[in-house]
């Protein structure tokens, strides 16, 4: 294709990408370099029969004027990125210097809000993503081997979690694990402890959030792999069968390699999706035990009366950077495949 033709061909897509992806990111980046103006304070002295007294008040007019003159706020450079709420370089240095063991150091690190959220987000991503990939493949293979008559119903049932709105789905699970819910009450009965609560333990709360994550996103990987299974060459499968491969060996040596491009695609989608984990934390009211990067962005933005746009912007950009790093191996592999095929 000629360069000129390619340019006109790609222009609508490119324009949409600039408008809806690049510009918002640039805008967020700019916002992250500024912090809210401090309020202008006025100290006034009032004297009476018992002496003089100083009082401090906010000069609303001057504050508003300042905000009107520079609506982005006060330029802070990369200060927001490095402050205690984000990368906290100073606090990390201090913790490194003052702690004796690695365990202590990690504990100090875990107390910092960004690293606390990062820990949960990464744990969620690296547990939920492989679980969804493996279980999705297992369900797809299982449904694929069902008799034709049962396949329709099995596919419908398998897709149900995907059809339920995330908020509703997570609320249902939340109610189920409540002391009065089916799961919660059963566990209390089994352990004969009426005070036992899944919600009271950080570990169990993480476990519950991850179970919900797997349950909710499993249909996506299942249906993608199921579609892919329909394209596995029958001859190759039969050749493997005659060569002596068991069902498991056929899955490992024939089916999975055939589905690798799909596995790459699903992995990319899941990593991106899981790094943005948010709804279940809100629905489960799990903020006390689990905070994700998305949740701290949300929290910054809902600071009553004084949203921390700069802070939210900085966390957003660090999250994007993290997504890029995590997806780099997959992106490099896709690029290599592309360049190899184009030669």
């Amino acid at each position: 294709m000629k360069h000129r033709t390619f340019f006109w061909f790609i222009l609508p897509t490119l324009s949409a990408m600039i408008l809806f992806i690049a510009l918002p990111i640039v805008s967020v980046f700019i916002q992250s370099l500024f912090v809210q103006h401090e309020q202008v304070l006025v100290v006034s002295e009032s004297c009476g029969p018992f002496g003089c007294k100083e009082s401090t008040s906010v000069d609303l007019e001057a504050t508003q004027k300042l905000r009107d003159e520079a609506p982005l706020g006060k330029f802070n450079g990369l200060g927001t990125y490095t402050n205690r709420s984000h990368l906290a370089f100073a606090e990390i240095g201090e913790a490194w210097a003052n702690t004796e063991t690695m365990g202590e150091f990690w504990r100090e690190l875990g107390d910092l809000p960004f690293y606390n959220a990062l820990t949960f987000t990464l744990a969620y991503t690296f547990i939920v993503t492989p679980m969804v990939l493996i279980l999705g493949m297992a369900v797809a293979v299982g449904v694929n081997t069902l008799p034709r008559k049962l396949k329709g119903a099995a596919i419908f049932v398998s897709l149900l979690p995907f059809l339920v709105t995330p908020l509703v789905g997570s609320l249902i699970l939340f109610w189920m694990v409540d002391g009065d819910g089916v799961i919660g009450a059963t566990i209390q009965n089994i352990f004969n402890d009426p005070n036992l609560s899944l919600k009271a333990s950080t570990g169990l709360m993480w476990f519950m959030l991850m179970v919900y994550g797997v349950w909710h996103t499993l249909p996506f990987s299942f249906i993608t792999f199921y579609a892919g299974l329909q394209t596995v060459p029958a001859d190759t499968m039969e050749a493997a069968q005659i060569d002596g491969a068991s069902k498991w060996q056929r899955l490992v040596y024939v089916v999975v390699p055939h589905l690798m491009p799909l596995v790459t695609f699903v992995t990319l989608m899941l990593i991106m999706d899981n790094l943005r984990v948010f709804e279940p934390i809100v629905s489960f009211s799990a903020e006390a035990h689990a905070r994700s990067l998305s949740w701290i962005i949300f929290n910054d933005l809902r600071e009553s009366g004084n949203p921390l746009y700069g802070s939210a912007g900085a966390t957003s950009l660090i999250t994007i950077f993290l997504v890029v790093i995590l997806m780099m191996p997959v992106l490099v592999r896709t690029w290599r495949d592309f360049t190899r095929k184009s030669h």
């Binding site: 050749a239 493997a240 005659i242 055939h258």
Partner: peptide, 14 residues
């Protein structure tokens, strides 16, 4: 038995 297929049926990843 061993079988040779019309479409070769080789394993493309190997």
């Amino acid at each position: 038995v061993a079988m040779v297929f019309q479409s070769y049926a080789l394993y493309p990843n190997m």
